[in-house]
Design a binder for these strands. Structure first.
Lengths: 325, 325
DNA sequence: TCAACATGGGAAAACATTTTCTCAGATCGA
DNA sequence: TCGATCTGAGAAAATGTTTTCCCATGTTGA
């Protein structure tokens, strides 16, 4: 212990923490010695007395999917700089396992919990309200009086539609996922409001196959063909682009396409690579970390839903403002 | 505290931990009361004295990729049942951040560390040898005297080639990634040993585009065409399948294709869905959790590289034993 | 010169457990 | 009946910090 370098344990503690009273010289000396011997205070002992463990828990039911992965990375990155480590709790929609994880975290006196999921209109299979620790919901549904973070899907959809309009599209249709998803409804509403002509929304499932089929439906009926397609996610967009190519329709020259999610593996490998909406989930994770930290430090945080803006990643399936005027 | 129910604190502790001496009746009573009031010992205080925090750290530099995701889930699932929580440490190949994470974990007295990455021939950008806590390397390169867990890529490749042979293929080529990857060499070696005719290995990058190009090369030279293609990963396989379809070659009837990784989003959406090799990374994660737990409990674990078997997921691009004899 | 006060630093309590000691009473063998 | 052993349970130490007091000594003002 660094106290061997001149002062008592209590003085050393105060020196390192910037509390207590002592000469500037003593404080400096203690700090220097601590630095030299590489002293690191034991977080367990510290946590025992301060009631802060510098630890938070991240609950997620999305262990294979792509949504919470960037969220997790964002949380971890944001917090490590503050000395806070993150417990990863993978629950597979299993209430029992969730309970076990939450209990384990509470035993370890976590300073807060972030609940994260793969759908922002579904709750995790465990009730986190009434816990003694603060909870932040990130890309997951929370209670009405909770602190919730989510992407602004309407704004994202507007971005997509605007990009198509800027590219000169006059007849834009929306091919998207099941109506049961909240975000599907929101994106569709924003699409309807943003588009000039009469809106046309095709609902299906979140797959490439549905993208194919949607193209088939659009092209195999008579009537005017669209010159722009806004897709509910990148998988559908890929199916759409593939379907168009197979029909000899050129993307983006004949029809421009915009996706949603910026799922790199899909968006970048599509021919041509997809212009798509990015929900900035890593930023969302960082924000969740920031908020839960603030709450754990007793700072007041307004409950409610915070919508974080999406951004548009322009690749080649829609070139946006390169419109000829 | 449950000690209010008849006995002293020390007796209560001994009752709940099964240590010390007391009448069976007392022990039962304490346990029952603890259960009733929902008593949960404080892990910080316990860790302070027992030197076990029931906490391990998971270091990964693969925050977007698909490899450590299932590994992480496996670790978390395996350990939570033992009361152990897992610290998620996302380091982006950044030695500085890695250092910070490791320090934070050591401060919190983790019982062990699992180092996980996206390539099993690359070390994480931080030296974990000489730490006071046990380290397990999972899908990441470790030191020679370390405990390392990895997939058995040679066995996986044999599975793939055998499936093609069983499907009746006589001329099988291998389209794979860059030579610089250890696993590429291993899979190629196993392929060469398992195949009947003269081997042919095409190296490229890990992309669909390369799969396309490989098909172009194979079909645009004269000479015998392959009737089976073993691909280095699912993305290449998808490119190959798409390339074949565009040439009017039927899969699997004219040419059977097997991929590697079982990356669901790619393998299942390919037309036809890919038969592919699964590295069972979740199982690998569980095993890593098991090992690090054992080591943290002082049990002896043999250093060395443990290869875990791959399995074959049969979909439609190669139907295996449905060979007509 | 003396009380009042500021300054620097240490002693000890507190945190919630586990673990080692100790000790009174019961049991047992001779 | 007496020492020895066994049994059940509590007291106290220990874990590594932070924090609250407290006490010297020095300084200031009257």
């Amino acid at each position: 212990m660094a106290a061997l370098a001149g002062v008592s344990i209590s003085t050393a503690s105060k020196a390192l923490n910037g509390s207590g009273r002592m000469s500037a010289e003593t404080r400096e000396r203690v700090k220097r010695v601590a630095q030299e011997v590489g002293f690191r205070p034991n977080a367990l002992a510290r946590g025992l007395i301060t009631k802060r463990s510098f630890t938070i828990g991240l609950l997620t039911n999305d262990t294979y999917g792509r949504f919470t992965l960037p969220v997790m990375a964002g949380v971890s990155e944001e917090l490590v700089g503050h000395g806070v480590s993150v417990f990863l709790c993978a629950i597979e929609d299993d209430p029992e396992r969730a309970r076990v994880h939450v209990d384990a975290m509470l035993d370890k006196s976590v300073d807060g919990i972030i609940a994260s999921g793969k759908r922002l209109d579904r709750q995790l299979p465990v009730d986190l309200s009434g816990l003694a620790v603060p909870v932040v919901y990130a890309f997951s549904k929370g209670p009405a009086d909770g602190v919730t973070l989510r992407s602004d899907d309407e704004q994202g959809a507007r971005l997509a539609v605007r990009c198509l309009i800027d590219a000169g599209c006059r007849r834009i249709v929306h091919v998207t996922g099941p109506k049961s998803f909240l975000s599907v409804g929101e994106r569709a509403n924003a699409y309807r409001a943003a588009v000039d002509g009469p809106p046309e929304v095709l609902h299906g499932v979140w797959s490439e196959a549905w993208g194919h089929e949607a193209v088939a439906r659009l092209w195999e009926c008579d009537g005017q063909k669209p010159d722009g397609i806004f897709c509910g996610n990148d998988q559908i967009a890929r199916g759409v682009v593939d379907g168009l190519r197979e029909r000899g329709v050129r993307v983006p020259d004949d029809v421009a396409v915009v996706g949603f999610d910026n799922w790199d593996i899909v968006a970048a490998q599509t021919r041509p690579p997809l212009t798509t909406v990015d929900m900035n989930l890593k930023t969302l994770g960082r924000e969740a970390g920031r908020l839960v930290l603030a709450m754990s430090e007793g700072r007041e945080v307004q409950p409610g839903i915070r919508k974080l803006p999406c951004s548009l990643v322009i690749r080649q399936s829609c070139r946006g403002a390169e419109v000829p005027a």
